[in-house]
């Protein structure tokens, strides 16, 4: 059951137009127009090399496109807009510090007072089920715990947009479920989730709308129900039918 807020709540709006990236004469990303807004997570599906992660990095400003524009809430993406975003990578990058210190790192940068930071860290650790591991070295966590910490750290600064690049690709079903719970709660609190996944089942479970990337282009972008029930593009039909190569 989904616990996303009802349509109409204030969600950030992300738009990309004429976004292009080419390397070595090969077009890697070619997005004519993409608008992401509204409640519920947007799941980005597609085969390997379709440009999913590249799109995510572009939208987060980690990679600059050769051409095109990205707008957040009708303003071109800049440092102040990026500060309202956060990203979690496929392989969690945890600082060589304790679990609590990983969270504190982000909160300190927000300029929070010590007491407020301690309270926020406790709140986050409880949310992620890591309250008993606060003083443990972050790098001694299991892969699933590490990814949960990475998500908690990304959520620490209460971002408006959270990018997730295949956060559960290395996890077993139990660990995946815990991550999905965190994602649902963040979405319910109003954070816009943009998540790349290979897992069609996961896209069905979490997605409010689906973006299908195919050969660097957006092949289809529709509400999840419509996408899965009546895929319109040939790419979507092929992908849902099990095709592996664009």
């Amino acid at each position: 059951m989904r616990d996303f807020p009802l349509p109409g709540s204030e969600y950030p709006r992300l738009e990309a137009t004429a976004l292009k990236i080419a390397r070595g004469g090969k077009t890697l990303l070619d997005v004519a127009s993409l608008t992401l807004d509204g409640p519920g997570p947007t799941l980005i599906l597609g085969p390997n090399g379709a440009g999913k992660s590249l799109l995510l990095r572009c939208l987060h400003g980690l990679i600059e496109a050769d051409s095109g524009q990205i707008w957040q809430d009708d303003r071109p993406l800049d440092a102040s807009q990026r500060a309202r975003q956060a990203m979690v990578f496929q392989r969690p990058v945890l600082l060589r510090r304790s679990v609590a210190a990983n969270l504190d790192f982000v909160l300190k940068r927000q300029g929070m007072a010590r007491k407020a930071r301690a309270e926020r860290i406790h709140e986050l650790l409880c949310e992620g089920g890591l309250q008993d591991k606060a003083r443990q070295s972050a790098r001694s966590l299991s892969v699933g715990e590490g990814q949960r910490l990475a998500i908690l750290r990304a959520l620490a600064a209460r971002p408006e947009i959270l990018f997730l690049d295949e956060p559960t690709s290395a996890l077993d079903p139990g660990a995946t479920q815990k991550i999905e719970t965190l994602i649902r709660r963040a979405s319910a609190r109003g954070t816009k989730i943009l998540m790349v996944t290979h897992d069609i089942g996961q896209a069905r479970r979490l997605g409010a709308d689906i973006v299908l990337m195919w050969g660097g282009k957006v092949a289809e972008h529709r509400p999840a129900h419509g996408f899965f029930e009546t895929p319109q593009s040939q790419a979507a039909q092929a992908f849902l039918g099990g095709a592996l190569v664009p």
């Binding site: 990095r57 980690l62 500060a83 990203m87 990578f89 600082l95 060589r96 510090r97 790192f105 940068r109």
Partner: peptide, 25 residues
């Protein structure tokens, strides 16, 4: 090589990354 994208994502410039890299190393 391991931290660069994460630190950029957290809003750190290359220069601001240096103390983090030295401390974590």
């Amino acid at each position: 090589a391991e931290y660069t994208e994460q630190l950029r994502s957290l809003g750190l410039s290359r220069l601001a990354s240096v103390p983090v890299l030295l401390w974590d190393g």
